[in-house]
Design a binder for these strands. Sequence first.
RNA 1: GCGCCCGUAGCUCAGUGGAUAGAGCGCUUGCCUCCGGAGCAAGAGGUCGCAGGUUCGAAUCCUGCCGGGCGCGCCA
Length: 532
Amino acid sequence: MNSSTGPLDDLRSAVLAAAAALAEAGPRSTPTLERPRQADFGDLSTNAAMLLAPVLRAAPRDVAGRLGEELTARLGDRLAKVEVAGPGFLNLFLDDAWFGDALRGVLAAGDAFGGGGARAAAERVNVEFVSANPTGPMHVGHARNAAYGDALARILELHGHAVTREFYVNDHGSQVRRFAESIRARARGEDVPEDGYRGDYVTELASLDDGEISLEELGRRGVAAMLERAAATLDRFRVAMDVWYSERSLHDEGKVKHAFDVLAEQGATYTSEGALWLRTTAYGDDKDRVLVRSSGEHTYFASDIAYHQDKRERGFQRLVDVWGADHHGYINRMKAAFEALGGDPAELELLIMQFVQLAAGRMSKRSGEFVTLDDLVDEIGVDAARWFLLHRSHDTTIELDLELAKRESAENPVYYVQYAHARIAGVLAKAGHDEADVAFADRTLPLEPGERALVMKLLAFPGEVAEAADRRAPHRIAAYALELAQEFTAFYRDCRVVGAEVEDFRLALSIATKRTIARALGLLGVSAPDAM
RNA sequence: GCGCCCGUAGCUCAGUGGAUAGAGCGCUUGCCUCCGGAGCAAGAGGUCGCAGGUUCGAAUCCUGCCGGGCGCGCCA
């Protein structure tokens, strides 16, 4: 737990201390400290007095007045002015020196800026995502899952957690057999079976079948080939998995048996109608679930339980699974199973990605019936694709019209953000500044509104990272990056940098902005070019 | 029928108790002697699905409806 992650947190502490001076119990909930919509409401505003009023049984505006006095006593000349406004807001006007120190703080934080604000202790986190079946190419749904899981991992890392990125490989079971049968049929020039795989990619794998090998071996080779493609596609999409975890290995290494033993010890399994069941209803599921079918075959659920038990035994403090919306009906049973294994259900997070809906009538021809991740990257590039997939909340469906996306890619806001970054690089080049020396003298000329606004926006970054991390919401970083770029552009419009009397300050501000844009884009896996 | 997600500007969507609800795209009108015009400024455009409730205060929390998506296998 850090005592301070920046000037905003110092102010927040001062507000809380001032509140505590008025009422020992403090406000009934955490006060806000945020940038008001209107400039004449000050640099920052807090609702602390309104939260305190019921506790003190006093009028909110009176409480605000007293709170302002307490705050003034604590902050001295850093606080240029306080005003009581509206129903009881307290608007804070900060001194120029405060902004100068704040900017120095941003620059001094260097690569750590934005991180270190973890509200909870750092954890070892396993993020399992994509996990596309190795029997077909990855489509846009996997692309969204990949972009989201990877960005979440990057955000959690900056936030201070130790993250493992993991891909669960479904290389076991009937689908692999059907995949092998499909390849063999193509190798022989026959039609694929009724329930087989039909894409051209299956035909392309026909050479794997020399006619001698077993169906099982052919399945292994087919899966290996598909995984190689998946890894290449993900690499191109800037996703680097740490672990590719084989479902088959769970069976081969006795981990399924082990998980069954753990469940049996807890008395959570029973046999009925020739099948082995897990009593998930004891943990909130609507019905019990089969682990071993009466035929003797294990269900997919059995593998998944063993997989999660293995993750627990590998010492992660938090497990995050990123699933597609079509799996949400699976949540209760997985949570139940996790609890039956002895796990704390709070340590298992099952995040559901809503679908990418394809605009009707604009399907890709290449893969037959869907737009693949590779298609998307081919058409609009990694930066635009990742931005498009990440800039909305994961729990809302997004609509993809590939033709429209192509046409509009030049108008994509991601380029606006990148442009701001490149423009700063241009300004620095013109000033002959190498970004090494970011020192600046204390201001004698008053700060311009654009300068104050830009510093404030920079200071908001650590809080945004914390929110994005805690709420598993990378899209907030995209929104922040756009706002920061807009704030810089307004500053750039109003404040001459090169040759200005306060050039040193403005160069330092520009550099801090450039780094923060690059960092925010980096969290999304989007590049920040110096020229475009 | 039950469960999960969604319903906010023409379109795509931010906004999980605070001041006059925002952005991008699209549309209208201006702006290239000016550090990068992939830009800037101004403007039009809203019953925040509907109805109750909680609160000093609700797009936000609760309840019930309506509409859309998805899921309810001894499939994976």
